[in-house]
Design a protein around this nucleic acid. Structure first.
Length: 110
DNA sequence: TCGGTGACGCGTT
DNA sequence: GAACGCGCCACCG
């Protein structure tokens, strides 16, 4: 065993931790998984998601937009997010200020 | 074995 | 605030 997929499993593990109604960026996942500056691999890993247990739709780019083309599955991703309570702006952008997942602990504990 | 491509991000201009 | 270029690594032909 010890195949290269172990690397992707780490990425999947982080994605699974994204709570419902929240989103995370590719770079954020890469950093949390210990692969800073490897956001591309995160995208590629999600492209080959082997299980439905992985909330791949909660991962978007740093611009707060869906990277996938609407003809590929971006429409599906958007629908999944909307069903979780995520609201898109008129420009089709998700306000990360409000919906980005913050694994770090609240400094104010509010 | 080598080169090009890709669900991206960040710094600089 | 937007656009351009470079970096980083795995997969395909």
């Amino acid at each position: 065993m010890g195949n290269k997929q172990s690397k992707w499993e780490t990425i999947y593990s982080v994605v699974k931790q994204i709570p419902e109604g929240k989103v995370a960026t590719y770079g954020q996942i890469a950093t949390l998984a210990g692969y800073y500056r490897q956001a591309r691999q995160v995208g590629y890993a999600l492209h080959a998601v082997p299980s439905d247990d992985i909330p791949w739709h909660r991962v978007i780019n740093a611009q707060g937009k869906i990277s996938l083309n609407l003809t590929l599955g971006g429409a599906v991703q958007r629908k999944l997010l909307e069903s979780e309570g995520v609201v898109f702006t008129a420009a089709g952008v998700i306000p990360l200020r409000h919906y980005q997942w913050q694994p770090t602990i609240d400094p104010l504990g509010s």
